[in-house]
């Protein structure tokens, strides 16, 4: 214990300059030369072989402790990066694409996937008119009660939640080989990679490459899905939907439309928040400018102060010339100082 204390005392007593010259590691550019020249002090020669040895030792120990085997099954293909116009700042959704996307959802996805957090009425004035949505909602039957208190089936209304294809989770699992189809309302923000991942997944179905196991019955091979074998078979092909507005239904067009629709269902208030945000940000920026000017007017007085020290015996001569500028005051002080030096 005493030895440690004495050592530390020695370290503490040694001057910082000495200590630095002993302990300072040179920069990388000096490593190649193996020595560092110091003009202000004596020259030192270092041997940095031990650094390399240490690094190699740490790496080899690390490699020995981990068996660095990666099975190809554990990885999935990274999704691509597409350009989505609605993800840019101050841009709104393409409402024609939302209407087409709703058609794709209704004709393709709705057979298996629910939208349990979304109301029919949220479509009004976004994708459809009020009358159109009322007609669409009335196509589905909901459990209800009549005037005598008997359980009946009533047609859907505009304030209902969008219907689920299966009554409960167990039935959904039974119908799909044990894999429950996820709810699609929040699917865009509930997956890493958002729109890009969904687009890669929907258009990325492939035939099984050589060496991979064949998928089980009801499964398909998709390199973008974690584990490769997805319970959903390929749904989107060229011309699998007939668009109302005459857009040519290529596979990529269909995928783009339905993903824009799912992006809107996960963030239905985007257009509103941009509208309010432009007002709020501009007014806050104006207030920032106003307070900046206020702050500068107050701060300049403090920041441009001049502190000068008067010489004893010469205070009065400066005080007499109250009107002279600061520069001449300094000149007087300088003169007084130069006189004192003489």
């Amino acid at each position: 214990m005493t030895l440690i204390k004495q050592c530390s005392r020695l370290l503490a007593q040694s001057s910082p300059r000495n200590f630095y010259t002993r302990a300072l590691l040179p920069t990388v550019s000096h490593w190649r030369r193996g020595s560092k020249s110091n003009n202000s002090g004596p020259k030192f020669n270092y041997n940095y072989g031990f650094v390399g040895l240490l690094g190699a030792a740490v790496c080899s120990v690390g490699a020995a402790l981990n068996d660095g085997q990666i099975s190809a099954d554990e990885l999935e293909l990274a999704h691509g990066h597409m350009h989505w116009e609605h993800k840019e700042w101050f841009k709104s959704y393409d409402h024609k694409a939302l209407r087409r996307g709703f058609q794709v959802y209704k004709e393709v996805c709705q057979a298996c996937h629910s939208m349990q957090y979304f109301y029919w009425r949220l479509h009004v004035d976004v994708t459809h008119t009020k009358e159109e949505i009322k007609e669409i909602a009335a196509e589905y039957m909901y459990p209800g009660v009549d005037d005598d208190g008997n359980a009946i089936e009533r047609p859907g209304d505009i304030q209902d939640i969008m219907p689920a294809p299966y009554e409960n989770e167990i039935k959904a699992r039974l119908a799909n080989n044990g894999a429950e189809p996820p709810d699609l309302t929040l699917i865009n923000i509930a997956r890493e990679g958002n729109e890009d991942y969904l687009f890669s997944l929907l258009t990325g179905y492939e035939e099984v490459p050589a060496g991979q196991a064949e998928p089980a019955e009801g499964q398909a091979y998709n390199p973008y899905f974690h584990g490769y074998y997805i319970g959903m078979a390929q749904q989107l092909y060229n011309e699998s939907v007939d668009y109302e507005d005459g857009t040519i239904p290529y596979q990529s067009q269909i995928a783009k439309d339905v993903i824009q629709y799912l992006s809107w269902t996960s963030h239905p208030w985007m257009d509103e928040s941009i509208m309010y945000g432009m007002k709020a940000i501009s007014s806050a920026a104006l207030l920032t400018l106003f307070t900046y000017i206020l702050m500068r007017t107050r701060r300049n007085g403090f920041r441009s102060r001049q502190i000068h020290f008067t010489v004893p015996g010469h205070e009065k001569s400066i005080a007499k010339n109250g009107n002279v500028s600061n520069f001449s005051k300094y000149k007087q002080v300088d003169d007084a100082l130069s006189k004192m030096k003489r």
Binding site: W89, E192, A280, I281, T288
Partner: peptide, 28 residues
Amino acid sequence: FLDAFIVFLFLTFFLFIIFISSYLFFES
């Protein structure tokens, strides 16, 4: 006044986050 300026400067950037990229800090 310095504090007021800094707070309004912060407010501008903060409003930008909440209204323009709302889901920035949400966990997927």
